[in-house]
Amino acid sequence: MVDVSKLRETAREIISREDVRELIGYRAGTYGFRARPAFVYDPGEVDQLIFNPACVNNLATYITLEEKLPVPRGQEPDLRKVAVMVKGCDSRALVQQMAENAYERDRILVIGIPCTGVVDMDKVQARFPDVLGPGEISLEGDKFVLIFDGRREEIPKEELLADKCKRCRFPTPLVYDVLLDEEVAPFATDDYSDVEALESRSQDEKWAYWEEKFSRCIRCYSCRNVCPMCYCNDCILDRLRPQWIRRSVDISENTAFHIARAYHLAGRCIQCGECQRVCPVEIPLMELNRKLYKDVEELYDFEPGVKVDAPPLLSSYRPDDPEDFIL
């Protein structure tokens, strides 16, 4: 577990630096057990920072989500660094962003958090729907400990752990400037049995399955906006001419949207699972992402978000690249 006073002290030193503009971390949420992103601009604000298993958000998204307005005449752009707290999974987004040249390494200052797993907040909410909070979650051994309203509940880790953590191979950040705790050894493996189960279904079964899911989609684009790899300045979804995907919400356009979203992440998705976490109508987007992840690994022996200097899959070519799936 990350020591919170050490976290705040480190944050205080970093935000006090002249070459750092802001620090993105976590703070307590407004109800229940929730935690949420925190934006710190001033050393006086660091005492709100926390880290616990409720800190689910992948903050790497904010590096590429920044809105860059034109700089007024006579002013210089603010090129100071952005400091960001990342767990192991989140750090892979930074790695992949930098591998794609989204920005230079020296633009960011990475505060690494070796992570022992985060909760699935829906599961917490379902168990304790009436807790106004603030409630606190911590991990003690193989149990999550929840403290709220003067009560203390211990729940076996497996019961509240987020699915992505059950197959996490990178609990310690792969890129960092400061590491807040001892490295955490990988505690899980990934056998892709979920993807294999999906693959084994017939075409008709798969279509019926996805038709029900896609028919629920309201096209709020939260899956795109939360994705640290969805950072195109000009996304095809917002384009009117040509309008690749219509704004109308029906099964045809929804399917086109979801296929486009998944394919644009092939060889790029780093499996942080944020898209599926935020989907208000619970579309299991990670099943699509993981199918493509597995295909890319099998076909090209490539894993995104692991090495900053690895050329991105879609912009590299080897003469012996397999091509027998091309129609």
Binding site: R36, P37, A38, F39, T61, Y62, L65, I218, R219, C220, Y221, S222, R224, N225, V226, V278, P280
Partner: peptide, 13 residues
């Protein structure tokens, strides 16, 4: 709004 992702959840729902 610092943390806002700019998605449509709050308005569409």
């Amino acid at each position: 709004s610092d943390a806002c992702l700019g998605c449509g959840i709050c308005t569409f729902l």
